[in-house]
């Protein structure tokens, strides 16, 4: 590991260029479920970033002592312990948000982003770069969550953080809330559009066309 690591690019790459959610399809499960309001999206982002950074640091520190055959179990146990700590903290100090997040905090354990990160990067790098990279990926995840969360809360209820931004029609304003924004389908649509937007600006991320028909059977002679 002689080459100098460029901390700045390790940190900022995952924001747009290598975004874990929109490019690598990691960690989508929780990204969509918790974005009905900005507050839950922000809590989830912070929890995930903390768990991810600490898990990457821990795994990287003991990376020379983990036998290869049981590394997945070791990593899952480390992540699960960190998630339990976060879950207990949320239940103790942010009871309301913790109820709104329901089981999704616990599901950070099986968030493919965390396991993918520890498996692919932290296992081969020193603690500091591993933590910087994990933090960057956490920020990339948070970026997507916050964009979708604020769009959904703004257009679904006309609020941000529970404060009225757009005056509602029923109380004398002009804005009629789009209740579809609070339902499941809109999260899929918004993330699809976000992927489209990012890939229009970064054409190199677009996927190659599939030329071969998937179910094509050679005609018999």
């Amino acid at each position: 590991m002689a080459e100098r690591l460029n901390f700045w690019s390790t940190l900022t790459d995952p924001l747009i260029r290598q975004n874990p959610v929109t490019l690598q399809i990691l960690g989508i499960c929780s990204a969509l479920a918790v974005t009905t309001t900005l507050a839950t999206a922000l809590t989830m982002s912070v929890s995930l970033t903390v768990v991810l950074t600490m898990a990457a640091g821990l795994v990287s520190m003991i990376r020379r002592h983990i036998p290869d055959t049981i590394r997945l179990i070791v990593q899952i146990v480390i992540v699960a312990s960190l998630v339990i700590v976060i879950d207990q903290i949320l239940q103790a100090y942010f009871a309301e948000i913790s109820r709104a997040l329901s089981v999704y905090v616990g599901l950070i354990t099986t968030n493919c982003l965390v396991l993918g990160q520890t498996e692919a990067y932290a296992r081969h790098h020193a603690p500091l770069p591993a933590m910087v990279d994990a933090f960057g990926n956490g920020l990339g995840y948070s970026f997507v969550l916050i964009v979708i969360g604020s769009l959904r809360e703004l257009f679904g209820k006309g609020e941000l953080f529970g404060a009225q931004i757009l005056p509602l029609a029923e109380s004398g304003g002009w804005f009629t809330p789009l209740s579809l924004m609070l339902l499941a389908p809109s999260a899929f649509f918004l993330l699809g559009l976000l992927v489209w937007t990012i890939r229009s600006f970064k054409p190199e991320q677009a996927e190659a066309r599939e030329h071969t028909p998937p179910l094509y059977v050679e005609p018999a002679e």
């Binding site: 929109t22 499941a184 389908p185 992927v195 489209w196 937007t197 190659a208 066309r209 599939e210």
Partner: peptide
């Protein structure tokens, strides 16, 4: 949809999300 002529940025993941959204609307 593998045969469809989609905009480059929407190919693959993008259209999968839109499809999932439409199916989710149906399941609602």
């Amino acid at each position: 949809l593998a045969y469809a002529d989609l905009p480059a940025g929407l190919r693959g993941l993008g259209i999968a999300f839109v499809l999932a959204g439409l199916m989710s609307l149906g399941f609602a």
